[in-house]
Design a protein around this nucleic acid. Structure first.
Length: 560
RNA sequence: UGGGGUAUCGCCAAGCGGUAAGGCAACGGGUUUUGAUCCCGUCAUGCGGAGGUUCGAAUCCUCCUACCCCAGCCA
């Protein structure tokens, strides 16, 4: 980082403050965090914030961060998700400590701990059905009733648990519960479930188990086994903290982690719920989890958001306990900011109309040179300039009454600068039978490449262009927000009602400067005056160049 | 409703008894061969509400209000 670059303002983060204090007071020697996704879907922006927080904190304080799959529910989880999550975390630029970890790595230990609780008289096998158990649990204002199986002899519970494990009972027939307090105002403490029967294959443990631990009976213990010091989770788990601590206090765990909750990231115009994202995929509203319109990490990647930009966005978000909604413009700003600094400039005409330079011979190919970046030394690119060019339809008007301030483009009879090339004058238009402009005839002003035009010639502005004969045809996919409602999943209407019908558009007849065909997939360019576009990760090739629009340039022009 | 949590500019958010940081957005202006970038400036006599304590309150006390979460054999 150059000394000229101003240090980014320190963003508030109460968890970082706690860690600093703990390190200061020697409450812990080194910080250990973990990112604990359940492999039941793809990671999204919200997870990106959590990843940046957990890995970032470990990095900042010289500690470590584990990647641990919370795979305690085989009915919702799949190996595909495990693989995708690992790829996403790596792509974001983080290295987890040691091997990837799984809750399932500790299933034997959990089982032994469950037996321990039974022997201590702190857990029992309960035969109540789900409905009965719900009834026994009581309600907010009414305390629950003890299960009739609560005082079952430990030996019997031990035997039953063993038989549950061996698959002797049907799913739902029995559960193992902790014996805590059926009248607790915190529902999580009303004899929570530790194990339930699930006769399903598990992506990691196969058919070894017929019972699986609950989130509550797993999470704190996993943290303790791994020596996690600061277990960071989202607000909705705050109610579980007393239970998290109850297990740590009642089991011979090797360490005592502490849980801290922060407010998850919510973005307006966006849906971040694995269930809903999965629905978009399953209903084929989008092309997949990595559709460029998806707020998934793989979707944002496909869209052209750089990992660095996503990290910058996340690190710029204060960490607090309030549950707010961040304006999508904040994300977009981080993306533009990063892409402006790092992407090569290029020209692409999205809606072409032919421009014929009448005073340039057909056989001539002049080579213009243009910097790859206006400020950084990213080299030069060569642009073939020929008699026939393409410019964007929106950059020309026959209306000579348009003021210079309102229309800084080409007007019939007037001048405009062709970016990195000549100043030209529009002389006449050729129209088709339908009245549509087919060609614009123009003449170049000699000596204006890299030079100001002679006195009296005032170009209205600068427009981009591509040689019609030397340029290349390309496909550009234009994306817009998936939802046209700021809070698609709030209110009565189903979130699917708020889908933006114009969130995807394909432009098949775009023209790009020839140098772009050499691009490597996933390279982002700034198409000048238009925005940022990425060579598609899968579909781009020199033969069939396909670009995805990442995001448009800031547009302060009110009349557009 | 019982419990847990949160309320400070349009959005996010500092502030921890001494007289309202910052980012995004918005709005002016300057530079510019991208209507971009960059630069400069404007933007809360006000901190959910009502009382109270104090020389002094966003910060302390009391009461009230709103919103979020839990009441799965999901995580």
């Amino acid at each position: 980082m150059s000394s000229k670059e101003t240090a980014p303002a320190r963003v508030s983060n109460f968890i970082r403050d706690i860690i600093e204090a703990d390190l200061q007071s020697n409450a812990c020697a080194a910080v250990v965090t973990r990112f604990p996704p359940e492999p039941n879907g793809y990671l999204h922006v919200g997870h990106a914030k959590s990843i940046c927080l957990n890995f970032g904190l470990a990095e900042q304080f010289g500690g470590q961060c584990n990647l641990r799959f919370d795979d305690t529910n085989p009915s919702k989880e799949e190996q595909e998700y495990v693989d995708a999550i690992k790829a996403d975390v790596e792509w974001l630029g983080f290295d987890w400590a040691g091997e990837v970890k799984y809750a399932s790595d500790y299933f034997d230990q959990f089982y032994a701990w469950a037996q321990h609780l039974i022997r201590e008289g702190k857990a029992y096998v309960c035969d109540l059905s789900a409905e009965e158990a719900s009834e026994y649990r009581g309600w907010a204002t009414t305390p629950g009733k003890n299960s009739p199986y609560r005082e079952r002899a430990p030996e019997e519970s031990l035997d039953l648990l063993e038989r549950m494990k061996n698959g002797e009972f049907a799913e739902g027939a029995r559960v193992l519960r902790a014996k805590i307090d059926m009248s607790s105002p915190n529902m999580n403490l009303r004899d929570p479930i530790l194990y339930r029967i699930r006769k399903q294959s598990h992506h990691q443990t196969g058919d070894k188990w017929c019972i699986y631990p609950s989130y509550d009976f797993a999470h704190g213990q996993e943290d303790a086994i791994e020596g996690v010091t600061h277990s960071i989770c989202t607000l909705e788990f705050a109610d579980h903290r007393p239970l998290y601590e109850w297990f740590l206090d009642n089991l011979p765990v090797p360490s005592k982690p502490r849980q801290y909750e922060f407010g998850r990231l919510n973005l307006n115009f966006t849906v971040t719920s694995k269930r809903k994202l999965k629905q978009l995929v399953d209903d084929s509203v989008v092309s997949g989890w990595d559709d460029p319109r998806m707020p998934t990490i793989s979707g944002m990647r496909r869209r052209g958001f750089s990992a660095r930009a996503i990290r910058s966005f996340c690190n710029g978000l204060p960490v607090s306990k309030s549950d707010g909604v961040v304006d999508i413009a904040q994300l977009e700003s981080a993306i533009r900011d990063d892409l402006d600094k790092h992407s090569t400039r290029a020209m692409c005409v999205l809606d072409p109309v032919k421009l014929v330079i009448s005073n340039l011979d057909e056989a001539v190919v002049e080579t213009m040179t243009a910097p790859a970046h206006p400020k950084l030394e990213l080299g030069l690119r060569e642009l073939p300039f020929t008699r026939e060019l393409y410019i964007d339809r929106a950059d020309f008007s026959e209306d000579t009454t348009l003021s210079r301030k309102k229309f800084k483009r080409l007007v019939l009879g007037e001048y405009v600068r062709l970016r990195s090339a000549y100043v030209i004058k529009a002389d006449e238009v050729v129209k088709g039978d339908d009245g549509q402009i087919v060609e614009i005839h123009a003449s170049l002003v000699p000596g204006t490449v890299g030079e100001n035009p002679p006195e009296g010639i005032k170009p209205r502005g600068v427009i981009h262009w591509v040689s019609a004969t030397e340029g290349k045809r390309a496909t550009v996919r234009v994306y817009d927000r998936l939802f046209n409602h700021p809070a698609p999943d709030r209110g009565e209407a189903d979130f699917m009602q708020h889908l933006n019908p114009e969130s995807y558009r394909v432009l098949e007849n775009c023209w790009v400067e020839p140098g772009l065909l050499d691009a490597a997939p996933e390279t982002v360019f700034q198409f000048e005056r238009e925005g940022y576009f990425v060579a598609d990760r899968y579909d781009f090739s020199a033969e069939t160049p396909v670009f995805n629009k990442t995001i448009g340039l800031v547009d302060n022009w009110a009349g557009r």
